[in-house]
Design a protein around this nucleic acid. Structure first.
Length: 235
DNA sequence: TCATTAAATTGTT
DNA sequence: AACAATTTAATGA
C-alpha cells in the first residue's frame, strides 16, 4: 500500500518547489497549468519506500530536495545496480511510458521532498507537448550513457574510480540540474550508494581532493573538475 | 542575537 | 567497529 499511503500525505507544490522542476520551464502556459494542477508533493522520511518492484506505475517521480536510492534488484536475486537520485532528478518515465510495473525499488536515503505527476497527465503531455518530449528524450538518452559507463567502472572495481564515477553521475548537469556544484551527501550515504564502507569512501574522497577534482565539505562534496572525475582512471 | 547544548558528520585507529 | 574531534542545528534567554 505504498502509493495510497503517500497520497494521503500529498500536498500541492509551493511556488519555490515549482521553480525546481526543470521540465515545467519549456511548457506553454496551458500545458503548464494542467501539469501544475496534477503535481503532488510529499515529504518522505529516511528509509521510506516510494515504489516497489512489481507495483503498477502510477506516478512519474522527481526529487525536489533530499536524496533517493534506486535499487534495481530482481524479485529473486541480489541487487544489481544502485543509482542515487539527487535534487532535480526525475525517473520512472520508461516504466510509465510503457504502462508497465516498476522495475526497481526507490527508497529515501534521508528526509526528502518528492514530487509526482500521474500517469494520465504524463501521457497527456507526451501526446501534445514537444518541449516535454524533448525533455524525456534527453533524459532517456543521458541515462543510457550513464548506465553504460557504470558497467565499465564496476568491472574495474577500483574503489577510488568507483567513487569518482559515482560522484560524476550524481553531478550530471542534465539529469540532475538541481545539484549545482555542491552536492549535499554524507560519506555514509555515498558509501551506501556505491557499495563501499564509509571509511573507504573517506579515503577515496581525500585521494580525489588531493587531485583537485573535488573539495570535501561538511555534509557534502563540491566538484571542482567534473570532466576530471569522469575521466578518472584507476591508479 | 548570542550562548549553551544536543545531534550529526568526519577523521583516525 | 569504536572513538574522538569537529561542524551544524536546536534551544532558550
Amino acid at each position: 500500500m505504498v502509493v495510497p499511503h503517500l497520497l494521503r500525505r500529498a500536498r500541492h507544490p509551493t511556488e519555490v518547489e515549482l521553480m525546481d522542476i526543470p521540465w515545467l520551464i519549456g511548457l506553454d502556459p496551458q500545458e503548464r497549468a494542467v501539469a501544475v494542477a496534477d503535481l503532488k508533493v510529499v515529504n518522505v522520511a529516511t528509509g521510506e519506500l516510494l515504489c516497489r518492484v512489481g507495483r503498477p506505475a502510477t506516478f512519474w517521480f522527481g526529487v525536489v530536495d533530499g536524496l533517493l536510492k534506486m535499487s534495481n534488484d530482481s524479485a529473486l536475486g541480489m541487487p544489481i545496480t544502485f543509482t542515487g537520485v539527487p535534487p532535480g532528478g526525475w525517473f520512472g518515465e520508461g516504466t510509465v511510458l510503457k504502462r508497465e510495473v516498476y522495475r526497481y525499488n526507490i527508497q529515501a536515503l534521508r528526509k526528502s521532498v518528492v514530487a509526482g505527476v500521474g500517469v494520465a497527465t504524463f501521457h497527456w503531455l507526451i501526446d501534445r507537448s514537444i518541449p516535454f518530449n524533448r525533455f524525456i528524450t534527453q533524459q532517456l538518452n543521458e541515462r543510457l550513457g550513464q548506465f553504460i559507463a557504470a558497467r565499465e567502472i564496476d568491472r574495474l572495481g577500483d574503489p577510488d574510480a568507483r567513487v569518482a564515477h559515482g560522484l560524476a553521475a550524481l553531478f550530471h548537469p542534465v539529469l540532475y540540474p538541481g545539484v549545482g556544484s555542491l552536492l549535499r551527501i554524507t560519506q555514509q550515504e555515498l558509501g551506501y550508494l556505491i557499495g563501499l564502507s564509509r571509511q573507504r569512501v573517506n579515503e577515496a574522497l581525500h585521494a580525489l581532493q588531493a587531485q583537485a577534482l573535488i573539495r570535501i565539505e561538511y555534509g557534502g562534496v563540491r566538484v571542482l573538475d567534473l570532466d576530471g572525475l569522469r575521466r578518472h582512471l584507476p591508479r
